[in-house]
């Protein structure tokens, strides 16, 4: 941390948050020196990227292999109509640089896979799971465990959302919190793991969850996140739409993060999750 690095313009730009109790100059310095990678520049990734860039995270990575389509625009608010047909990563990078040209934005136009996960994710402090399928979620969790980094995981479907931070460093005495596999040792039934194309998704739901993911990342970076394992559930149509859950600790017998962990290095994630899912786009939806 080198607080002296802040420029006069940084004080002007971030003044509203630098006067917050608990954040201040030390917190802003941590943000400016931090790096966050967002896997998935879709419904969750767009708002997360916006607020990470706005808050002054120094280096932001974006990973996605998709191109922008018209059907994305009801929720993926960084992508403009004029970018339909272009890479989501470049579209999102261009958008957040216009919000904050002082952020360094690294682009990774690729699908995240077992072969590249370590090399793509290893240089970042915090990993955001803004992906949309079970194999990627298991891969990101296993990789976060291997790299010893926190994974801020968001998910959304229909009018519901879920937010959880996995593998969070809870301090010297407590070690790390649970990983995704501690909670869900096996993937859901493919019949229940519908994609957004199949089951639908409302844009503001991904907006709420993605924005909360950015907030979680900031709390972790500045050291204001309560370390207790918890999960937040959001159901937009319920009268009381949020529910916070107290979660278990890391499981000693977890194949990824347990005392005999690391037993999953040669896993075929897609097969583990029940095989490839149908291409609904090609089926005309």
């Amino acid at each position: 941390m080198e607080p002296a690095k802040l420029k006069l313009e940084d004080y002007r730009r971030y003044g509203r948050q630098m006067i917050l109790p608990g954040l201040g100059l030390p917190g802003q310095s941590k943000l400016l020196n931090a790096s966050v990678v967002v896997v998935g520049a879709g419904g969750l990734g767009c708002p997360a990227l916006q607020y990470l860039a706005a808050s002054g995270v120094g280096r932001i990575g974006i990973v996605d292999h998709d191109i922008v389509e018209l059907s994305n625009l009801q929720r993926q608010v960084l992508h403009l109509e004029e970018n339909i047909g272009k890479s989501k990563v470049f579209s999102a990078a261009e958008a957040i640089k216009k919000l904050n040209s002082t952020c360094r934005v690294d682009t990774h136009v690729c699908a995240i896979e077992a072969a590249n996960a370590i090399s793509v994710l290893s240089t970042y402090d915090v990993i955001l799971d803004c992906s949309d399928n079970p194999p990627t979620r298991y891969l990101l969790s296993d990789t976060a465990v291997k790299l010893g980094k926190p994974l801020v995981s968001g998910a959304a479907q229909m009018f519901d959302g879920q937010l959880c931070t996995y593998n969070l460093d809870m301090g010297p005495d407590l070690g790390r919190g649970p990983c995704y596999r501690c909670l869900f040792p096996q993937p859901p039934a493919p019949e229940l793991a519908g994609s957004c194309e199949e089951t639908g998704i409302f844009g503001a739901v991904t907006g709420v969850v993605g924005t909360l993911q950015a907030m979680e990342a900031v709390k972790i970076i500045v050291g204001m996140r309560d370390p207790g394992p918890s999960m937040l559930l959001y159901s937009a149509m319920e009268l009381s739409p949020f529910r916070n859950i107290k979660l278990r600790s890391r499981k000693r017998d977890c194949p990824a993060c347990g005392i005999q962990g690391g037993r999953i290095s040669d896993l075929d994630y897609v097969t583990f999750c029940g095989g490839p899912r149908p291409n609904w786009e090609e089926r005309g939806l």
Partner: peptide
């Protein structure tokens, strides 16, 4: 008592 299945979309 609540039963939830993990969500995957984004």
């Amino acid at each position: 008592i609540v039963f939830i299945s993990t969500l995957h979309g984004g």
